[in-house]
């Protein structure tokens, strides 16, 4: 299979206006062109990436990167964002993977990405899972509902700043955070007296 650089060059030549960045083994694509790039990967006769194996969402909190440039310490503030990683393989040519990354703008509100479900049916449940656990709204998804959590659930439990609700059951051997939580509930309040009917 071609290297990442070759794939990048070919995509940029074929799709004018698309700018890709390379991070490690993966190609970073912006939101507007994700669908075009995915369609190119699928239809290109040499790549023939007909199979999206894995779709994984990630949460990156705002962070700072300190680097030294020209004997000065430079601090860069990285805004927080949600990221989705796609692993494409080809069942016809039996090669792969080509890894695509796409990032949302910020992580507050309803960050959104285009859905690749119209192109790859296999992304349907995986995008629903990413929406459920991370709160990424996939534009163009035919049936974007919660899949693992129940419908009335409010928060997104896989985000890094998710705090579970304070409804711990008392544990006999508590540790660390659980211990702190338990202290609030221990000793348990006496059960409410049962009213005579």
């Amino acid at each position: 299979m071609e290297t990442v650089d070759q794939i990048k060059d070919r995509i940029e030549a074929a799709l004018p206006g698309v700018r890709l960045a390379i991070e490690g083994k993966s190609l970073v694509v912006d939101r507007q062109h994700l669908l075009d790039v995915a369609r190119f990967l699928k239809t290109d006769s040499e790549l023939a990436m007909d199979y999206v194996s894995n779709l994984c969402a990630m949460d990156w909190l705002p962070s700072q990167i300190k680097t030294r440039e020209c004997d000065r310490e430079v601090v860069r503030n990285l805004p927080g964002h949600l990221e989705v990683v796609y692993d494409f393989y080809s069942t016809a040519k039996k090669h792969g993977p080509v890894q695509l990354r796409c990032r949302t703008e910020g992580r507050e509100g309803t960050p959104s990405l285009p859905s690749i479900t119209p192109l790859f049916r296999g992304a349907e449940f995986q995008e629903r899972e990413a929406f459920d656990l991370y709160g990424i709204r996939f534009e163009g998804h035919p049936d974007l509902r919660r899949i693992l959590m129940w419908d009335g659930f409010k928060d997104f439990p896989m985000r890094k700043d998710y705090r579970p609700p304070d409804d711990y059951e008392w544990e006999p051997t508590p540790h660390d955070e659980v211990l702190q939580q338990t202290k609030k509930h221990w000793p348990a309040p006496p059960p409410a007296p049962v009213k005579p009917a």
């Binding site: 008392w170 006999p172 508590p174 660390d176 211990l179 000793p187």
Partner: peptide
């Protein structure tokens, strides 16, 4: 008996 949470952990 249930272990009361100890503060020295």
């Amino acid at each position: 008996p249930p272990v009361p949470p100890k503060s020295d952990v």
